[in-house]
């Protein structure tokens, strides 16, 4: 791992914001992948041998936070993690992911029985060249749509990264070990929380701005204590997500796995609450398609499902009972 002490995760904030803005103007996924790759963001975690920057997970956080806040319509989280995971397994493939030539995604939900089955919740699978599908042995196979696998349109909440289903008849392609998949899933928890953090921050900032501009009863909405307290609670929620991402990545954290799990579950719940609250503060305007608060809410709900928030709460329960017994 690079020990270049000159670099700081916050150094990526500006770049990530600028690239996210540029991506919003781009025509399609290939253009967006080019922009992300040019800025080095797809390879932020991957080793230098495949063209990456070899930086620790903490560096991906501000990038995904900007992506979450800026409606980035690209599988950046998946590309970051898959480029790192396939380096050393298939360097040519990892390089193609880093360079932006090969957009890849993951079917986060379900697993194959043997070499076939239907898996789902693969963000942007219809636009991606490869999809990682998980097997019953807890390893993963990177399948190519059209070659023993078919991507099927799915009804989906997320507008930026619509999810699809993948029907696999004969899984074949480069493989990841169970350990590699476990690492990928664990790191994805914190990165999803970062996407949610960005979205929640944007919801809060839009709601605070709107509350101070909109006048009713001859004064801004923000002159009412109930609105102030709504926003104060949202501020607490945002800060809770932020502090817990920080804690999950801190070398001082005693049980990072438990911290990451709570961070993601907390982010899924609190982030959605902030988005819902922002809609409420906007009144009728909040219910319009045009005001993009619903886009954040949709993304947060999709991320909650991709990360298996409900299963993770069950895992927390199981641990609690085991520890107390």
């Amino acid at each position: 791992m690079t020990t270049d002490t000159e670099l700081n995760p916050e150094d990526f904030v500006e770049t990530a914001r600028a690239v996210t803005t540029a991506c919003a103007e781009a025509a399609g996924l290939p253009e967006r992948m080019d922009l992300l790759a040019e800025a080095g963001l797809t390879g932020i975690l991957a080793p230098e041998a495949v063209g990456g920057m070899d930086l620790p997970l903490g560096f991906a956080v501000p990038v995904l936070r900007a992506a979450g806040g800026g409606f980035l319509a690209a599988p950046l989280l998946e590309c970051m993690l898959l480029a790192r995971a396939f380096a050393g397994v298939d360097d040519a493939l990892a390089s193609a992911i880093v360079s932006g030539e090969m957009p890849v995604t993951v079917a986060w939900s379900g697993m194959l029985g043997g070499t076939s089955g239907v898996v789902g919740r693969a963000p942007l699978a219809e636009a991606c060249a490869r999809v990682l599908v998980l097997g019953a042995d807890e390893g993963g196979v990177l399948v190519t749509p059209g070659e023993g696998a078919m991507v099927e349109t799915e009804s989906t909440l997320d507008l930026e990264r619509p999810e699809a289903r993948v029907r696999v008849t004969a899984a074949s392609g480069p493989e990841l070990s169970a350990d590699a998949v476990a690492r990928l899933r664990a790191d994805a928890l914190v990165l999803r929380a970062a996407l949610i953090l960005g979205a929640a921050e944007d919801c809060l900032s839009r709601a605070a701005d709107y509350a101070q501009e909109r006048v009713q009863f001859g004064r801004p909405l923000s002159a009412n204590q109930s609105i102030q307290h709504h926003l104060a609670r949202d501020c607490l929620a945002v800060e809770t997500i932020r502090n817990n991402i920080h804690r999950s990545l801190s070398p001082e954290c005693a049980v990072p796995a438990a911290a990451a799990r709570a961070t993601f579950v907390g982010a899924a719940t609190l982030g959605a609450r902030v988005a819902e609250s922002a809609i409420q503060v906007h009144g009728g305007m909040g219910f319009t398609w045009e005001v993009p608060l619903h886009r954040h809410l949709r993304m947060i709900k999709a991320l909650a499902a991709q990360g298996g928030a409900a299963d993770l709460i069950e895992a927390v329960a199981a641990d609690l009972l085991a520890n107390a017994a």
């Binding site: 800060e239 809770t240 502090n243 817990n244 920080h246 804690r247 999950s248 801190s250 001082e252 954290c253 438990a258 911290a259 799990r261 709570a262 961070t263 579950v265 907390g266 709460i313 069950e314 927390v316 329960a317 641990d319 609690l320 009972l321 107390a324």
Partner: peptide, 26 residues
């Protein structure tokens, strides 16, 4: 603990972790 309040107890456990996040970060 095993069934009736299982999920509610797990949610408390998550909150405790989140509280630790506040304290340790501060």
């Amino acid at each position: 603990a095993e069934s009736t309040y299982r999920r509610a107890l797990a949610e408390v456990s998550v909150n405790i972790e989140l509280l630790k996040g506040h304290v340790e970060t501060l």
